[in-house]
Design a protein around this nucleic acid. Structure first.
Lengths: 232, 232
DNA sequence: CGCAGCCTTGACAAATGTCAACAAACGTGG
DNA sequence: CCACGTTTGTTGACATTTGTCAAGGCTGCG
């Protein structure tokens, strides 16, 4: 296994503080693979054999029940996913599929747990990462329970705008049908929600969104750092 | 500070594996306090000064936005809450209030972080606990996004039945208005949902619930271990 | 060119929330 | 122990939100 492939993850906060020896132990049984788009990497309920790390491309985390399906999150480089299942040695709660051609590093879960048991720095990094993940889901939960779909969309767009560097106009990075699922609504409803935001300073043309009246959209969306800020 | 007060938390999975010295350091600045019902212990947005541990009674975790409010979880003895905020030294994402007279242990967050940095066993225990919390919220998210309110109620009742030892008849342990909030609906809607489940083998009288046709309710609810099992 | 998938739109249905009224349960102070 | 007021739960009527179904346009690709 060429070291070069793992150089890019060595500096991740999750691995940065651990010794070279332990990092080596971690990647000894690991490998990197490139997957085409729309490949199901893991299925919910499967045992957690590997910790996954997205090196390039993007991955959709979703879940199903009773014939319905919903997207819970999108993983973008460079981040891990299903860390919680790995450390608890429990089945995955979510399925994962590539959204585009993606390079994924896979580290055997047993190696993660083994190194985790002997490397305190790594254990601490895992805590920080998990706490972060946890807080993200709590924010998503608040978003879902406290806001209408129109409000969720408005706040989502303001968050995306910030990601895009604050530009007035930017491209959606999700397919709309998936964005609808992430926001907890149907594609039809999302179409109407976009129209419903026009009176509040929004213009949409295909995947291009333009915020024509920032102040008005902000007044409608009322973003909160305790729901919409990524960092906190 | 009498040791007796902390004996009950010494055996928690979170603290069991740490040395006596480190446990002592953890509780040196800690204290136990008894609060009456309906006291707001923390407010979302506050800095995370203390790790809280419910010794007796119960605590409601809730969040507000734009004049709306929703309950996210109930903490029962003996468990900690807001561990994630503590380890990240970030503001609380949820508010907390006592539901009844409750004894709460408070451990200064800085002590938690300090011990966490020097005690690998403690760090590992924190990971396990956080991963557990994370998975709980993910399940709640799936429950909310994949099920209708009637289905959520049905599955909630089946979970409660299991907690009650599998008895056909049991008492609700939440006030109904709060149960409605936990399940993501209005109190009026919950009333109707209870009636809506009658054809599927449910009878309700005040806080007493009787499952008159277990098989039928199961067929309607279709519980899934990946949403409804506490352990996994 | 033609097919397939995505997006949009309209009409309609179902689910959920809102408001108002009232009954029942509870706690408090007389 | 009772009377009172407050809170909670229930119900009905209605509004709003959201989902469903069907159709058609658009785009990208073989």
């Amino acid at each position: 296994m060429p070291d070069s492939a793992f150089g890019e993850i060595r500096d991740l906060p999750l691995f940065a503080a651990m010794t070279d020896a332990n990092f080596a132990a971690l990647v000894r049984g690991a490998y990197v693979q490139t997957f085409p788009a729309q490949i199901e990497l893991i299925a919910e309920g499967d045992p957690s054999d590997f910790l996954h790390i997205v090196l390039s491309g993007s991955v959709d985390l979703f879940a199903s029940w009773n014939g319905r399906e919903t997207s819970l999150a999108t993983v973008r480089p460079i981040s891990t996913f299903i860390l919680a299942a790995t450390v608890r040695d429990a089945p995955y709660l979510m399925s994962a599929r590539t959204l585009e051609k993606s390079r994924i590093a896979l580290i055997p879960s047993q190696d993660v747990r083994a190194v985790f048991d002997i490397d305190a720095n790594f254990a601490r990094a895992v805590v920080t990462e998990l706490a972060q993940c946890y807080r993200s889901v709590v924010k998503a939960q608040k978003d879902l329970k406290l806001r209408t779909s129109l409000e969720r969309l408005a706040n989502y767009l303001l968050r995306q705008q910030r990601r895009a560097g604050g530009a007035v106009s930017f491209e959606l990075e999700h397919e709309k049908r998936r964005l609808a699922s992430v926001l907890g609504m149907t594609p039809e409803n999302l179409s109407r929600a976009f129209k419903g935001l026009q009176p509040y300073g929004l213009a949409v043309d295909g995947a291009r969104v333009t915020i024509t009246d920032q102040a008005e959209l902000l007044r409608f969306a009322r973003p909160s750092p305790l729901i919409d800020d990524a960092a906190t």
